[in-house]
Design a protein around this nucleic acid. Structure first.
Lengths: 228, 228
DNA sequence: GGCATGTTTCGCTGATGATCGAACTATGCG
DNA sequence: CGCATAGTTCGATCATCAGCGAAACATGCC
């Protein structure tokens, strides 16, 4: 005799490691094929197929056939809200059993973390934005974009803060796995990575690695030096 | 080789039916003893003990010994945020396998749903507040308290809207299990139920039932008739 | 048509984890 | 001191479900 909706069913859908990894990948708001998600989660195609069917039945994702591919995407904003809330919860747990960081130097330097930038460079950029006063630390471990920040992100990086919408946390700190210090996540973090791609400052490398182009390396180095 | 925090671990903690039921109970922001939670979840004390240990290890709850009791409470607002996000996700799923509603007429009429009021009366009240313009429907299936609403809730029910704090959704619709129409949830829903208790309009009945006193029945009937 | 690729279905196996009975410890009461 | 109540630990059982191999199905390309 329970009242209200069944939260356990939804949570246990997210609670499987393979499924949660797929959902994390989908947080970038793009649609992924079943095969891509299988590879991302490190499972075979059969298993992935079963997982996708369950996620769809649970209303967490929508599936669309297109040719011989089947694209999956998060069902709506409510789903990403829930995932992000869980992410925030999970982020604050110390993880003693985890390795201190990626062994690959390229990964240490710059990599993608879901839909934003992580690694050495990402942490340096966060420091830089804070030092310039583009971001301000606010209560409860949060960050806020300042007025100068709105101008700065627009002028220097071509990011229109206003266009990012009203989503509650426009930017929030995400603890960097290798650096153990925060880098930018949230809509602004996503926009930052997209800006770097579209300006040709970075390219996708092996796996999660992100390779800086010569021009990108120079521009970012100049930015960071500027603030010290 | 995963990046970022482990969302699956947290989600699977919530994903167990017994544990999720305990967490739902704890959403009322009070501290419950281990035994109470065991009864609430319909499991034995041993099992509950194991669950509580896991929830604590996962950082979802905090435990405090006091004499021979052990009180459990949600760790912080981040946890209830995540639970509410999941609740919102779960609420929109049709549940064909579930019975249409409680058989007990008393339960149909008025009962508590987590920390707010549910049942016939609760839905009537929601209709009433909307009709009076105290609440306004806003985008994305939400509700907002209007200026007249702030005065009304204060004058008629003694609820100080300003004192409810800045928690993002001050009020949100919660689909009523028996009526299949929304009633008030969120901080305002909680305050409403508390107001009814403190004014002596309702008393706790058997289980989840809420019994209206003679005076309470009259006052609510007058309120609702007013708006038609 | 024939072939490669992407996806799904079927059947089985194995591991995880929830559950409870029983016994044990800790606290409060008289 | 006993006694009662609250909570925990231990061990064993049992159901659930992720996972994969094998084979089928679907689609696009030549």
């Amino acid at each position: 005799m329970r009242d209200g909706p069944d939260i356990a069913e939804i949570a246990s859908l997210i609670g499987d490691p393979a499924r949660s990894q797929m959902l994390m990948a989908l947080l970038d708001r793009r649609a992924w094929t079943a095969g891509e998600l299988a590879r991302e989660a490190g499972i075979t195609a059969q298993t992935a197929s079963a997982h996708l069917a369950k996620l769809e039945a649970g209303g967490l994702i929508v599936l669309e056939r297109q040719g011989r591919h089947r694209y999956a995407a998060l069902a709506d904003g409510g789903v990403s809200d829930a995932l992000e809330a869980l992410l925030r919860l999970a982020a604050r747990q110390p993880k003693p059993k985890r390795r201190p960081g990626p062994r690959d130097p390229a990964l240490r330097h710059a990599r993608s973390c879901y839909n934003h930038l992580a690694g050495e460079v990402a942490v340096q950029l966060a420091d830089h934005f804070l030092a310039l006063g583009w971001l301000k630390a606010v209560a409860d471990d949060g960050w806020r974009v300042t007025k100068p920040g709105e101008r700065g992100f627009g002028d220097v990086l071509g990011i229109d803060i206003g266009a990012l919408g009203e989503r509650k946390p426009l930017v929030r700190p995400c603890l960097d796995w290798s650096e153990r210090r925060p880098h930018l996540a949230g809509p602004l973090g996503t926009a930052l990575l997209e800006s770097l791609f579209s300006r040709g400052w970075v390219r996708r490398g092996e796996g999660r690695a992100v390779a800086f182009t010569r021009r990108g390396e120079e521009r970012v180095a100049a930015l960071v030096k500027d603030s010290t």
